[in-house]
Every structure is written in C-alpha cells, then in structure tokens.
C-alpha cells in the first residue's frame, strides 16, 4: 500500500507540490500514533504513517531519520511554515486529516490489516 492509498480513508486532501507524486508513492507498512517525540524516535518503524498533533519542524527531522512513510496531522492542524518547507526538502509527505487520532488510527488500522 502507498501513501496515496490512505488519503481517501483518512479524508486527506493532498497538498499540491512538485514532488507530490513521488512522495505519495512512498510505501506504507503500518502506523504509529504518538505526540512524544522520543517515543516515536525509539519505537516507530520504517514505513509507518505517524499520526500526531505536533506541527513543528522536528517532526520532519524524526520522520526523515526514521524513514517513516508520512506524517498525518490530526484535527485539521496545518504544519508550521518551516515544517512544510523541511518536509518538501526531505520528500516526506506531511498531510492533514480532519479526524482525531483515535478515528484516524482506527481507520488506518482497518485499511492496513483488513480487520
């Protein structure tokens, strides 16, 4: 499954960008929901979609270092300006869902695991 395949389920409107197609083709292997950065650093795995309410630039640094598939910001949160710039530079999709973390995680789980 690729990032583009989770957009509809999570009610995400993709942001237009030069590399949107390539970014949205990143492979999704799972999900991780947390707002504690060290928790994500220590326990998230490559290819996971990170569900969080944190919008600052360090989110991109962690997503890049951990090679996460994408960051999904909950409850219509938008990335800070420097976050969006860093995301473009690193090629990490930072997406916005209107859903809360429970709903987003639940839908993503069902989509990935078919439960």
């Amino acid at each position: 499954m690729q990032v583009k395949d989770i957009l509809e389920t999570l009610e995400i409107a993709p942001r237009p960008g030069d590399d949107a197609e390539r970014e949205l083709a990143r492979e999704v292997t799972g999900g991780y929901a947390s707002d504690l950065l060290s928790d994500v650093m220590g326990h998230a795995r490559e290819g996971q979609v990170w569900i969080t309410l944190q919008t600052h630039k360090n989110v991109v640094a962690i997503a890049s270092l951990k090679e996460l598939a994408a960051v999904v910001l909950v409850k219509n949160r938008e990335p800070d300006e420097d976050t969006a710039a860093a995301a473009r530079a690193e090629g990490i999709p930072v997406l916005t869902t209107p859903l809360d973390a429970f709903e987003a995680g639940g839908r993503l789980y069902r989509l990935l695991r078919g439960a």
Partner: peptide
C-alpha cells in the same frame, strides 16, 4: 510542549 522532555531520551540512547 513540543513533545520532548518525556524522560525517554537517555533510556533510548542506552538501548540503542
């Protein structure tokens, strides 16, 4: 508030 400072940094270092 940024999500740091949860007291997990040094334990993460030790494990890794």
């Amino acid at each position: 508030e940024m999500g740091f400072g949860a007291g997990m940094g040094l334990p993460n270092i030790k494990r890794n």
